[in-house]
């Protein structure tokens, strides 16, 4: 007798499964899971905290907040950040002060762990939400974060 109940139960479970997929088939028009990526570029907005790449914001006077303390460089586990710095004489005080020449960021080595931004005492570097990072040449992924001719904002001390 279990032979026939096996058949009955078997068919029943198969039909239950088909009902689930069939239900989705009928409602397929309502919502698809997938996104049509290059088409939805305009509307696609990443979350604020999304870790795309590290950038250094500059204000309208071409000033950033990096003092060149190198804490990010030390915090980075992969050596993605290299800071080339110099000492310059600050005019008001006459003292020598550290100043960045180039803040080099190797995006190709970055694992997006966020330790550098966590370590930065002056919030000079932040996450950008850009995620389209593919390039044809690996060297293009090495970026200089401070803009040419930029200088540190007044009153930023580490």
């Amino acid at each position: 007798m279990s032979y026939f109940s096996d058949i009955y139960n078997g068919i029943k479970t198969l039909l239950t499964g088909m009902r689930v997929t069939g239900g989705y088939f009928l409602n397929a028009r309502k919502g698809t899971l997938t996104q049509q990526y290059p088409d939805n570029r305009e509307t696609l907005k990443m979350f604020d905290r999304f870790r795309g790449e590290v950038v250094m914001p500059h204000d309208e006077n071409n000033e950033h907040q990096c003092t060149g303390c190198q804490k990010c460089e030390i915090a980075c586990p992969n050596g993605s950040i290299e800071i080339i710095w110099d000492r310059a004489i600050v005019e008001e005080t006459g003292k020598k002060k550290k100043k960045i020449d180039q803040h080099i960021y190797h995006l190709s080595m970055c694992t997006m762990c966020g330790l550098c931004i966590e370590a930065c005492p002056t919030d000079a570097i932040v996450w950008a939400q850009n995620f389209e990072n593919s390039v044809y040449d690996r060297t293009q992924l090495t970026k200089v974060l401070n803009q040419p001719g930029s200088k540190v904002k007044d009153g930023i001390e580490d």
Partner: peptide
């Protein structure tokens, strides 16, 4: 296409 609709996708388009 049918597979895509079962799987809540769009399929070739």
């Amino acid at each position: 296409k049918v597979a895509a609709w079962f799987q809540l996708r769009l399929g070739p388009n």
